[in-house]
Amino acid sequence: MSRIAAKFADLKKQGRGALIPFVEAWDPDQETSTRLLLGMPGAGADLIEIGMPFTDPMADGPIVQAAGKRALAAGVKVRFILDMVRTFRAQDQTTPLVLMGYLNPILSYGPEKFCVDAAKAGVDGMIIVDLPPEESDLILPFTNANGLDFIRLVAPTTDDARLPHVLNGSSGFIYYVAITGITGTRSASSAQLSEAIPRIRRVTDLPIAIGFGVRSPAQAAEASRVADAAVVASALIDTMAHSLDASGKALPGTVEKILDQVRALAAGVRGQPA
């Protein structure tokens, strides 16, 4: 069983959904983002998404764009992200890690070599934002051959006729993009979520995570209840952005501040009072 499947099976036994916090690799530098990544399981992260910075993140709002810019300025490369994963795996063998990014840096690295190296480093799954099912044969043979889950996005615009096509070849979990929009902007309403998630459930047994617009512990609790997991990204990066000094460098309390926020989100997902 893959790490992702094992994690969701375990949480099902516990009767709760998962919290999936996001960390942009090398935002604002290698050391800070690595410490943040290493601290997340202890703060209550069930799975972790690692953002792979790209110069032109067309699905991301200003908050994630700025994070990517800081990371690129710090000198992040694809191979350094895999180094971060190796560092994490040296101390944690159970928390699933999912890489989320855009296609071009992976193409440039070489799709097959990337999947081989990512699997070896300890990556469990991949989300490639600009790779719809129509184009995923570029990567799918290599994720499959290396035991990596290929996590697809489903959007509010994905209608019932298209849904089976999107799910075909998906593994790990389904990432439901809760709004028609970019990251860090709006949130879906409860009514929208309770209409959308059963629609996907009817055609897949895979766990469903909700992302885009999940910011507060209450929203995370709701998302993990309506679906199986809540992805929180922009809200954490926002905290990062506001805890840096004027030159964009991390301050002594930066990592702890974000981990406190992860703790609060985790409490929400666990149904504990904030």
């Binding site: 067309m58 699905a59 296609l103 600009d130 719809p132 129509e134 959007a155 509010p156 615009t157 994905t158």
Partner: peptide, 20 residues
């Protein structure tokens, strides 16, 4: 039919835009 000229072209967009 995939929008390719040789190996170039295609449809590399997020799922939200794909139906459109």
């Amino acid at each position: 039919e995939r929008g390719r000229f040789g190996e170039y072209g295609g449809r590399f967009v997020a799922e939200t835009l794909m139906p459109l």
